[in-house]
């Protein structure tokens, strides 16, 4: 495996790598391969889902706050073993990805996302809309999220948020 060095890539190549990473991430989520979700993160990662209202007002509260890959796995355990929820399928669409900074051991990026929810008794609906603010590093030749913040515009979460964004 060739070693990936973000600093040596051209902007177009970085953007391409970012798109590939995000595409792999959302397909793992949407196609039921939840076990792979933590693999996209570093061991001491930080993952949060934050209402835009809080983010813009410097309020620290997230609706989902994981510190470290272990907490990501705990969420998967809860989804599989303990939480009650009506059957549903989620589908992410991402776009307008930008590398905002590339320095040191990684890069920062922003990507828009929309998540659609499909349940048994309704038509598909827009569930959550927002942007990813990512800090990406290279670990063992792979790009990983050291931090992923999902800042969502949607003012009201419809019923409940079960799956990662």
């Amino acid at each position: 495996m060739t070693t990936l060095d973000l600093q040596r890539l051209s902007p177009a190549e970085r953007r391409y790598e970012l798109d590939l990473l995000t595409a792999g991430y959302v397909h793992a989520l949407d196609d039921g391969d939840l076990d792979r979700w933590p693999d996209f993160f570093t061991e001491d990662c930080r993952y949060k889902i934050i209402p835009r209202e809080n983010y813009e007002n410097d309020l620290p509260l997230a609706i989902w706050y994981c510190q470290g890959r272990g907490m990501l796995r705990d969420r998967i355990t809860a989804i599989r073993e303990t939480q009650l929820y009506a059957p549903r399928a989620m589908r992410h669409v991402t776009g307008n990805a930008l590398v905002t900074e590339c320095a040191g051991d990684g890069m920062h990026a922003v990507t828009n996302y929309a998540v659609y929810e499909s349940t048994l008794d309704r038509t598909s609906e827009v569930f959550n809309v927002g942007r990813y603010l990512d800090r990406i590093v290279v670990e063992d030749g792979q790009m990983k999220f050291a931090e992923k913040l999902c800042i969502f515009d949607t003012s009201l979460v419809p019923t409940s948020l079960i799956f990662p964004i």
């Binding site: 609706i63 989902w64 939480q83 929820y85 979460v157 019923t159 079960i162």
Partner: peptide, 17 residues
Amino acid sequence: ANLMGPAGYVSVDDSEV
């Protein structure tokens, strides 16, 4: 706060039920 709210480990069950 992970226990509570729309994505809360505990509260999700109540919202759904």
